[in-house]
Design a protein around this nucleic acid. Structure first.
Lengths: 147, 147
DNA sequence: AAACTAAATTATAAGCATTCTAATGTAAGA
DNA sequence: TCTTACATTAGAATGCTTATAATTTAGTTT
């Protein structure tokens, strides 16, 4: 069994445990998210599945993404651009984003615990988590710029 | 001259240098941003100025924010919630955001250069900058939760 | 100081992502 | 198989932001 397939099985188990029904559409949205190495928008998921489910509503995609978010199966990524992206890799990692083409690449780095600790001391907040995004130009766009 | 006043003067000089006209509305938007310790949304700016400029259009606020963004006088902050916030403090700093009330507080911490460097090596990106946001519950909301 | 012109403002319409609503359909247990 | 609470659907509605076209104006030129 491949890694995405295994994650899908685990996710389905989590859904069942949470008392959430497994419908064909829900299954398909989850499967697409798990297999995608990108971080798709709701519309990208919708378009990717319209062959399989010609009658599926965009609302269904949004509804299911919300369900997955609530259970903690996916994370929502919001950047400057208009629409949210969804990341099914919930393990600790950061993102590096191309200023030119918007590509998002996962980037592993040890968690910045000392920043969280200092933030608590200085601001009095009860810190829950943090987000780090690095911006730059990806190799593809660097090549493009040379020609 | 107070610090916000001084920053306003500097900003006006920058605008002139960039060949941007100083209109009363533009001046007012900039002044409000500079004096505000919060990170207002476009609508908050619009509402704050409607006494002074009863005929001002929301479009004017958006237009001017874009001008300021292009020149680098302000930064746009986009989080999960619907509308962008604007930060006229362009010095290096991070933000800590309350999960409950959405309050955004400036938080100073040395720039994470080593993260940028590692990201370049690992991903091949030409890194330009990065963003760090810490999330948690502010003191006010911690108090509220107790009662 | 008056005239000029490119840029800014205004009011309104339009666009887009997302959410809501109400009717219909269905997964999963009894 | 029957039942029912939950999901899906289509389409309307919402809210933020941008576009359009007409009017006004800042800042320069005469």
């Amino acid at each position: 069994m491949t890694v995405p397939e295994q994650r899908l099985q685990e996710a389905l188990t989590t859904l069942k445990k949470s008392g959430v029904r497994i419908t064909p559409q829900r299954h398909a949205v989850l499967e697409y998210l798990m297999q995608s190495m990108k971080h798709p928008t709701a519309d990208e998921i919708y378009k990717a599945l319209e062959d399989k489910f010609p009658n599926m509503s965009v609302a269904t995609v949004y509804n299911n993404l919300r369900v997955f978010l609530d259970i903690g199966l996916v994370r929502e990524l919001t950047y400057g651009d208009s629409s949210s992206r969804f990341d099914c890799n919930t393990s600790d990692h950061y993102h590096i984003i191309c200023d030119e083409c918007g590509k998002i690449v996962d980037f592993h780095y040890p968690s910045l615990n000392e920043v969280e600790q200092l933030a608590e001391q200085v601001t009095g907040f009860d810190v829950s988590n943090h987000r780090l995004e690095v911006y730059g130009t990806c190799e593809d766009c660097q090549q493009m710029a040379k020609h």
